[in-house]
Design a protein around this nucleic acid. Structure first.
Length: 534
RNA sequence: GGCUCCGUAGCCAAGUGGCUAAGGCAGCGGAUUGCAAAUCCGCCAUCGUGGGUUCAACUCCCACCGGAGCCUCCA
């Protein structure tokens, strides 16, 4: 049932490795989720979309996947932000979690099995810290508990850092630490901060320990895949790894996956952004520096002030477009994000929508309906249509190509290329068989057409696209029916004018409709209309 | 300063030690159309620069130039 062809790039080894699960046929997968102190921005969606796709693909390949995404709902940022807003940390976390989940849903991320919250796992977290102290990998100090990095001789392997090169001076709490690189497992609470009872007094967990504790609770001491943004490699994942491995004496994770970060492009499509530590830049003349600062104010998404507005962005572009945009490049590469790239992704997506409309028009079947157009859901159960038709056989070949690309470290960027070629092959088939004309349709060519579209649907489902109609028609008040009736009337009148070769009238109707955003297309079997977005 | 990564056509973007370097957007030519739109066909790159390794490199190595990220509880 499992294919041995999947290869995954592992940050730990810096190599692509054959995918081998710990338990046959089962995959445990953990993705670091958000700290819910503010609205989600586009950057927070990269990981979920990628891992949602990975889960879909692995499930398609026959694996039973358990996917966990944690919610960090206690931390300094939450405390500070809730004070600013004058609400409790709990209220803030609840609201921001809801925002996050709504955005995930818009992007079609619906494969998550567990969404544990840190505050729901205090017992497990405290237990974990106690175990580390008992094993002498951690020590209590002034109400805090720290992990002793010098006790772990493998510390730094994931991020390729030497022990003495991290975390500089040790921060505010340096005096409580044995060495500057030690990180907090438990932080003592100031009087007015949210806190939990612990053996070390009132306090709250450090950032990293929750992931170790919750992943162990749900996925076990060792699991298959751990993911997150590239920015989490150090210190977060390095520390998580150290905690779990030292506590259990066995590897925490087989494959560490890290997605590239997203960058905002400015109106000209250029990217700015500078490393804050680059001191030579800081010494530039003030005029230059300030001008650059203004130009590149929004380059770094996670830190830019106006990073919110994800809901509006989805409203403007649709979740499917954003998802498709994210999947068009490789998950490990940095993605340039902006209105123009998104619009382009939308333009290219339209070609698929037109093909789907063409399919529905010709066959009378509903593409998105599972009963009317069923598709293969399992890699091993695919049956190629028996035919000598080149276009359809090309679709079958492209399906293989698509899956091979996915096998190679989830190369969704390459795979989407095959999707475009599949659409072209199917269109070529429609044209060659003249399926737009009722008289030319036979049970045979119609069946081949359907099988081709079924493959498109099968592969789309792996990427999490073409699952639902792109635009929801609001047929709540009957205006949709009225509009359609109106359009049919106009089309009828225009057809009569065209029969009389009164093109002045027919063009006037079409141009007038174009101006109000309705496009007419004359086909072999009559005229169709559609509303142009944007 | 330390550690990573990247540089493929006007733009976006896959990919490979040796067959014609995917695909998308834009553009151009053609078929089709009353004209369009859509669709199809065709055209549009020698892979940052300079060396090296090799029978052979865009793909490996070195240098340089350019860009990005992390090292600061950001995905």
């Amino acid at each position: 049932m499992t294919t041995n062809t999947i290869r995954i790039y592992n940050t730990l080894s810096k190599n692509k490795e054959p995918f081998q699960t710990l338990q046959p046929g089962k995959v445990g997968m953990y993705l670091c989720g958000p700290t819910v102190y503010a609205e989600a921005h586009i950057g927070h969606m990269v990981g979920p979309v990628i891992f949602d796709t990975i889960k879909r693909f692995l499930a398609y390949c026959g694996f039973e996947v358990t996917w966990v995404v944690n919610i960090t709902d206690v931390d300094d940022k939450l405390i500070n932000r809730s004070r600013e807003k004058g609400i409790s940390m709990f209220q803030l976390a609840t609201a921001m979690t809801a925002d996050y989940l709504a955005n995930l849903q818009s992007l079609g991320v619906d494969q998550i099995d567990h969404l544990p919250r840190a505050t729901d796992n205090m017992d497990e977290i405290i237990k974990f810290v106690q175990e580390l102290i008992a094993l002498d990998f951690a020590y209590a100090s002034g109400g805090d508990v720290y992990f002793d990095v010098l006790k772990d001789n493998e510390y730094g392997r994931l991020s390729n850092r030497s022990v003495d090169s991290q975390q500089g001076d040790g921060g505010d709490q340096a005096s409580r630490k044995r060495s500057p690189g030690d990180f907090a497992l438990w932080k003592s609470a100031k009087p007015d901060e949210p806190s939990w009872e612990s053996p070390w007094g009132l306090g709250r967990p450090g950032w990293h320990i929750e992931c170790s504790a919750m992943s162990r609770r749900i996925l076990g001491k060792t699991f298959d895949i751990h993911g997150g943004g590239l920015d989490l490699v150090f210190p977060h994942h390095e520390n998580e790894l150290a905690q779990s491995r030292c506590c259990h004496g066995q590897p925490m994770v087989t494959y560490w996956l890290h997605n590239g970060l997203m960058q905002a492009a400015d109106a000209k499509g250029k990217v700015g952004g500078k490393n804050d530590r680059d001191e030579t830049q800081a010494e530039l003349p003030a005029t230059t520096a300030s001008a650059d600062a203004a130009d590149s104010a929004s380059t770094k998404i996670s830190r830019s002030k106006g990073a919110g507005g994800l809901a509006q962005l989805i409203e403007r572009h649709t979740g499917e477009r954003i998802r498709f945009f994210l999947l068009r490049s490789h998950y490990r590469s940095t993605t340039l994000f902006g209105e123009e790239p998104l619009a382009e992704a939308g333009t290219s997506l339209e070609a698929f929508y037109r093909l789907i409309q063409r399919f529905e028009r010709i066959t009378g079947l509903k593409f998105y309906d599972a009963t009317e157009l069923p598709h293969n859901k399992h890699r091993s159960t695919f049956v190629a249509p028996a035919t000598k038709n080149d276009a359809i056989n090309e679709v079958v070949r492209l399906r293989e190509s698509f899956l091979t690309k996915m096998d190679d470290d989830f190369n969704t960027g390459g795979a989407t290329g095959d999707l475009f070629e599949i659409a072209r092959s199917i269109n070529r088939f429609i044209d060659a068989e003249q399926l737009e004309e009722t008289a030319k349709r036979t049970p045979e060519n119609t069946a081949l057409f359907i099988s081709g579209m079924s493959i498109l649907k099968e592969l789309g489902a792996i990427l999490g696209i073409f699952i639902k109609p792109p635009k929801q028609s609001n047929n709540n008040d009957g205006t949709t029916e009225i509009l359609d009736g109106l359009m049919q009337l106009l089309i009828q009148l225009r057809a009569e004018a065209r029969v009389k070769r009164d093109f002045a009238t027919s063009d006037s109707v079409r141009n007038g409709l174009t101006q109000i955003g309705i496009a007419l297309q004359d086909g072999k079997e009559g005229t169709t209309w559609s509303i142009n977005k944007d």
